[in-house]
Design a protein around this nucleic acid. Structure first.
Lengths: 145, 145
DNA sequence: TCAATAAAGGACATTTTTGTCCGAATAATA
DNA sequence: TATTATTCGGACAAAAATGTCCTTTATTGA
């Protein structure tokens, strides 16, 4: 609706990893894909991106898997994940697809989009993985279905 | 960023047609594509959808083309165009791609999305083609570049 | 040291979106 | 009536997004 599939999986995966890391559990791609109901191999690709961008931490070999340290859960905001996967088109692009569209030379929808986009950006920049993971932990929210 | 390319072109085309219809000018696909800077043949396809959905009116043959009558400019809101081309996923879908996601069983981002989505829907449902066309007419907004 | 387990990475496959091309249908006008 | 300009519709093509498979690399623990 707003993010690519890859980004949706990425966010769900990161939140699940955060949740498990709160219990000091490292999780494998297989477990993640199972728990967030996503295609395994594709999810693995996305996790690679998250790892390269230092959003999650990965460990190879037996007992390996993905984890997020407690500090990163606070500092990593959704905006970082979205940017790593979908780039900054959500923030930058014109709603009607014009290459140049700004207050000086706005498309017909420019002003109407400004507020919505600002709200979206603010939300993404202020929402941490920790916040999302704890909602899950308490059973208030879900990652499947 | 938010709409498909097809939808972006569709909105731009509709606004341009509305603008020209204010001058009682019927416009061809070629002129439209030229003026909104979009691929001609693809734009033609999208115009077919708009026609089938009674968003614009088309006339075949010489002197033919597309037009929107003055009344429709007021009654046709952006929401109708978006729905005709992109369906209702903007309104309905879950931000994280869950099949089932609602107040009872929300995804971790559900509440945070509610407001943004409501604002978006309200904006689309209240913005008419007339409003957008007149902004263009006065030279306040642009459809190209 | 060796077997097993997990992520990393590259090549490939499928699906969806975006985009093109061309013939048919329609209507104006000379 | 013939010509011409236009939309309509179907088939096709290209590009991007989504998704799979398999080999390599790292690491653990027996």
């Amino acid at each position: 609706m707003m993010f690519s599939k890859a980004c949706e999986y990425g966010i769900r995966a990161a939140v699940y990893i955060a949740l498990q890391s709160l219990d000091n559990r490292r999780v494998s791609v297989n477990e993640i894909a199972e728990e967030i109901d996503s295609p395994v191999a594709f999810t693995a690709k996305i996790l690679q991106q998250l790892t390269r961008n230092n959003i999650v931490h990965s460990v190879k070999g037996p007992t390996g898997g993905f984890e997020i340290d407690r500090e990163a859960m606070d500092t990593v905001k959704l905006s970082k994940i979205v940017k790593a996967i979908d780039g900054d088109k959500i923030y930058v692009g014109c709603g009607l697809g014009l290459k140049e569209c700004n207050a000086d030379r706005p498309c017909p929808l420019h002003d109407k989009f400004v507020d919505i986009r600002t709200d979206l950006r603010t939300m993404l920049q202020s929402t941490s993985l920790y916040e999302l993971a704890t909602g899950l932990e308490v059973g208030l929210t879900y990652l499947k279905r």
